[in-house]
Amino acid sequence: MQLGAFSISLAVKDIKASKEFYEKLGFEEFGGHLEQNWLIMKNGDYIIGLFQGMFDKNILTFNPGWNQDAEKLESFTDVRELQKNLKESGIEFDTEADESTEGPASFVIVDPDGNPILVDQHV
């Protein structure tokens, strides 16, 4: 099962302080909008999202259809197919992708320790 590009989305208290901290670790701005309180930062193949005031917990994030440079893949497993396979495996969902649509969609599952996992397809 290919889940796509991986990143961790961090719920931060002070996005400017977090940005400065991760820059010291070698991360550079890759996307987002500081004035909207969210940034995507990258160090090689490693991606973190910084989100102030948008959610309560850190989230593991997968993006079907993207590589680690947020470039569209020619071939990938659609988020709705991933959802169907996970349902067949007995995974329970917090939110589900609308299976009657095509294109961008997402779902959220939670691991046994309460960690949210967002599978968010942008293409």
Rank of each mutant, 00 (worst) to 15 (best):
K57R: 13
I8H: 05
G49Q: 11
M41E: 03
I8S: 09
P104V: 08
G32P: 07
F21I: 04
Q68V: 13
S18N: 05
D69C: 04
E29G: 10
S18D: 12
A5N: 11
W66S: 02
K24S: 15
N37H: 14
F62W: 08
E102D: 13
F76I: 03
P64F: 04
I59F: 06
L82N: 10
L3T: 12
I15H: 08
E23P: 07
F27M: 07
K13P: 00
T101L: 14
Q68E: 14
N58P: 10
G103E: 04
K19T: 07
I109K: 06
I91D: 00
Q68L: 08
A5T: 02
I109Q: 03
V119G: 06
N63V: 05
I48F: 05
S18Q: 07
G65F: 01
K72S: 12
K19W: 04
G114S: 06
L25A: 13
G114H: 05
F93M: 05
G114Q: 06
K16Y: 10
V79R: 04
K87W: 00
V79Q: 03
A70G: 01
N115S: 09
E35R: 07
F27D: 01
E28K: 15
I40V: 15
P104R: 03
D45I: 12
L3P: 02
A97Q: 01
P64E: 01
Y46V: 15
T77L: 11
E102H: 10
H122V: 14
S100C: 01
G90T: 06
A105T: 02
S7P: 00
E92H: 10
T95D: 03
G26R: 08
V79P: 05
S106N: 15
A11K: 05
M41T: 10
A17S: 15
D14A: 09
P112W: 02
N58D: 15
G90K: 08
T77R: 08
Q52W: 06
A97K: 03
W66I: 00
G53L: 06
E96A: 12
R80I: 12
H33A: 13
V12S: 08
D14Q: 08
G26P: 09
G32N: 05
E28A: 14
D111L: 06
